[in-house]
């Protein structure tokens, strides 16, 4: 046991991550959100999404959006989360607000009128459509923020261990982790395949037909190469007890505290309360 003391697996895993440049990547940190059990984070996020969709009007989801955003800031992952929210959220918000403001079937109350429009002369923008758009926008923002904060504050390895401790089969865990690692590998291979094909006269900057052809030419070696690697990998995994049934050890300790359990119950209770309120008061 000579080495026992100088190895901190938690710290090693924390340090080893964060280099692939993937937008959904884990952001190392030590906030209270990072320390929560991954299952707790999942349960809370899903509960928040349910609640946001149970509220019939926009102020409820708006409050949830703000509250979730505060959590994002406290977790210290604002930049990583906002980058994704901005990219997906901005066009979504614009289209929701414009389309519903103009064309929502329940539109009655005019908010603004824009004159001097060709063909139809003037365009009305309605309050009902605006509010309906806000309702959906805040629901979706709650969903995005809650899930993103869970993803970027949870190391994939911790997530799988937490899920396996709750009974998920180890093979699912493997597939999940391997898939995450596969993406950068495939990207790198795609670049080398394309280089090799251009070297043999494939013109990627030519007509559309040629470009489609080049896409096929890219996919074949990419897939076959992955399949060849799979045979070796399957044997390597078998040789390391992958199919073994029985108790497994997890080197990484993912604590599940009383606080975690309390938060999970609280989240589920909140969903129930809101659902009952919705049914009773309609």
């Amino acid at each position: 046991m000579a080495h026992e003391t100088d190895i901190d697996v938690n710290e090693i895993i924390e340090r080893s991550s964060g280099r692939s440049g993937n937008v959904f990547e884990y952001q190392p940190g030590d906030s209270f959100v990072h320390r929560l059990n991954p299952v707790t984070k999942l349960v809370i996020s899903v509960s928040l999404v349910f609640i946001a969709f149970l509220f019939p009007t926009y102020p409820g989801p708006a409050v949830l959006t703000v509250a979730t955003f505060v959590v994002v800031v406290l977790a210290g992952v604002t930049k990583a989360v906002l980058r994704i929210v901005a990219v997906i959220g901005t066009p979504l918000a614009a289209s929701l607000l414009i389309i519903h403001g103009l064309f929502y079937p329940g539109n009655e109350t005019v908010l603004y009128t824009v004159g001097g429009v060709p063909v139809v002369e003037q365009v009305h923008y309605y309050r009902e459509g605006f509010e309906f758009a806000l309702l959906y926008l805040f629901r979706i923002l709650t969903l995005m923020l809650a899930l993103l904060v869970t993803i970027v504050t949870t190391h994939p390895k911790r997530l799988t261990i937490a899920l396996m401790e709750k009974g998920m089969p180890s093979k699912f865990a493997y597939v999940f982790l391997a898939a995450l690692q596969l993406i950068p590998q495939l990207q790198a291979r795609a670049v080398s395949i394309l280089d090799a094909q251009r070297a043999r006269g494939l013109d990627t900057k030519a007509t559309l037909r040629r470009r489609v052809r080049s896409l096929f030419a890219l996919m074949i070696p990419l897939l076959i190469g992955t399949l060849i690697a799979t045979e070796t990998r399957a044997l390597a995994l078998e040789s390391r007890g992958f199919s073994r049934v029985g108790e497994r050890t997890f080197l990484l300790d993912v604590p599940d505290t009383a606080l975690d359990r309390a938060l999970r119950w609280l989240a589920v209770a909140a969903v129930v309360v809101v659902a009952v309120w919705r049914v009773v008061f309609g």
């Binding site: 046991m1 060849i228 995994l237 050890t249």
Partner: peptide, 26 residues
């Protein structure tokens, strides 16, 4: 090709088989 492809650090890669065997963490 013969690495598990599911490890984020070198130590996890070496530990993979041993975790499957259910050996004590130490």
């Amino acid at each position: 090709d013969q690495l598990t492809g599911a490890s984020t650090s070198v130590i996890e890669e070496v530990a993979f088989g041993l975790e499957n065997l259910g050996l004590p963490a130490d």
